[in-house]
Structure formats: structure tokens, C-alpha cells
Design a protein around this nucleic acid. Structure first.
Lengths: 144, 144
DNA sequence: GTAGATGCAAACTGTTTGCAATCGG
DNA sequence: CCGATTGCAAACAGTTTGCATCTAC
């Protein structure tokens, strides 16, 4: 039995074929609330379908980004993380442990559509700080 | 004759020694309005002092970031760029050619000092779009 | 059957590091 | 003079690519 999978539908519409690898990657992404890196996606995918290669994960993530189905986030030296939420929202990033959380604030209202001659298409707001756990424990950083 | 160099003073204050390499790197940074990457800093430094190594540039940039004298910016897949402006401001990034411009807007007013239990310390706002040149020319991207 | 997808390993890019030689204070 | 700084080359991490094999349709 094949679970419904929004991303599968989209892929099919765009003429891509649906392989077990892709299906699994999509399922992992759709259930991901923690902005996983490519490697984290890979690990989780392998837990369900052990022989998927990291290269396939990278290729698939790139396709999805190109199709506008997920976003790639690059905050300060981190590896890329992938975000299945496409609506306008902001991020809180812990400088201690690297945790990245969504916040629903949408600052679209302040976005100029034109600025310095630029045609502005989208914006990104990131708040950097310390998450609750990192405030409690040592003030130094822990993980990177 | 040795030009005055704000960053040199700071370094000296912090007990670092002032070498010709560092002095040149600082001068390049202080005159940089285009958010150069490490490699771009290196090129410009070499134009003035030909034997400086890229490793030295990286080490020096890292020191400055650690000392809080410059900022490191990481936007979407780009290599790191370095910004000598430390006051609160935002950025406009052209998705065509990669050009990165400052905008003076300071959205500090909307920054919550506390959110989801996070202690928020700073924020970053980036607007993505097309610069005037890229609007005129082909709609496709050019440089990355 | 065939175009497209996969997996592997090798290549690449940006960045960091170990270490011997060198230099600033 | 001595510890800090440099340059080199090698190491690294994350990501991408070439290509032979395999698979969805």
C-alpha cells in the first residue's frame, strides 16, 4: 500500500518518475520538523530503505529546491539545511547547539518591492540566540 | 609612512602583533564596500603585498570575526563573505549575479528579546531579488 | 525497450591544520 | 632572543559529477 505523498504527486506532474528512493526521501522531508541537513535526511531515509546513497539524496534535494518544493537554508557556516515549509516564516537559531526553530512571524509587510533599484522577491529573517537548554548549561557552545 | 589603521590599533590593544600581512589585510577590509570573500580579500591583498598566503588571510579573518571587528556572512551556498560594518543593517542580495548590497534599515525594533524560550541576541534580514543590471539583461542567472 | 534514475568512487571547492622557517617587539 | 606569525602542503567537510548499471513506465 502506497501512502499518499504530496511531493510524489508534484514530481509526477512534472514528468519525473517515482522511485522508492524518492518516495522515501519525500516522506522523510514531509515529516521533518527540524530542518535536517542532507546527511540527516540520508540517515533517516536509510533507516527505512537501507541502500539509498547520499548522492541520490543530494540530487533529489536539489531537484526539489529547483522545483520550488522545499527551501535550502544556509546559516553561518553550517552545512545546508532543508525546510519543507514554503510559506513565509522566520527562524530562530541557537548559537549554542545549532538548533533551528521556525517562528511564524511574517515580516512581509515591511518588505519593499523595490529597493536601491533591486526588484525584491523574497526575504529571510533569522534571529540568533541561545535556546532554553543552552541557557541552562554552560555558557560556552557545545556542538558547533 | 604608516597609514592610520583602526583595526591595527584594536589588534595592538588585544596584544596581537602587527605584521605587514595583517596591516594590508586590514586596509583592504576597511576599503571594502562589496562584502568580499576570503579569496577576494586575498587577491586584493596580493596586489599590494604579493607574497601573502591564503591561509594567512583565512586566519586573520577568523581572528577579526572572533574579536567582533568584522562579520561573516553566509548567504545561500555562497562562500563566506566578510563585512566590516558592525552596526545593525540589512542586506540586499541579487540572485542573478550574487551582488550583495547594504541597506541601512535597522529592524531591531521588531526583534523580540525572548522568543520560544530563546534568548535572542541578534538578527539578520536579507532581501533576495534582482539587481538593476540583472533585470535588464537575460532573466537567467549569470555568475552564481 | 528506453529514457531516466541510481550508486559508487573520484573530483571539486572552500576552509582548516600541522609544522618548520621566519619575524616583530 | 623568543613566542607569535607565516607559508606551504596536506587534510578536511560538504557537495557535485562521470559513468556503468539498473529500473520505472
Amino acid at each position: 500500500m502506497e501512502t499518499a505523498c504530496a511531493l510524489c504527486e508534484r514530481l509526477r506532474d512534472n514528468g519525473y518518475s517515482i522511485t522508492p528512493q524518492r518516495r522515501t526521501i519525500f516522506e522523510v522531508l514531509e515529516g521533518a520538523h527540524h530542518h535536517p541537513s542532507a546527511e540527516e535526511v540520508h540517515e533517516e531515509v536509510r533507516r527505512r530503505l537501507p541502500d539509498v546513497s547520499l548522492a541520490t539524496v543530494y540530487k533529489t534535494l536539489k531537484e526539489l529546491v529547483a522545483m520550488g518544493e522545499i527551501r535550502e537554508l544556509n546559516f553561518h557556516g553550517d552545512r545546508s539545511r532543508f525546510d519543507p515549509r514554503m510559506d513565509s516564516h522566520s527562524h530562530l537559531k541557537c548559537e549554542g547547539c545549532g538548533r533551528l526553530e521556525d517562528i511564524d512571524d511574517d515580516f512581509a509587510a515591511l518588505v519593499p518591492s523595490q529597493r536601491h533599484g533591486f526588484r525584491v522577491k523574497r526575504h529571510e529573517v533569522v534571529f540568533y540566540g541561545q535556546c532554553p537548554d543552552c541557557q541552562k548549561s554552560a555558557p560556552a557552545s557545545r556542538k558547533r
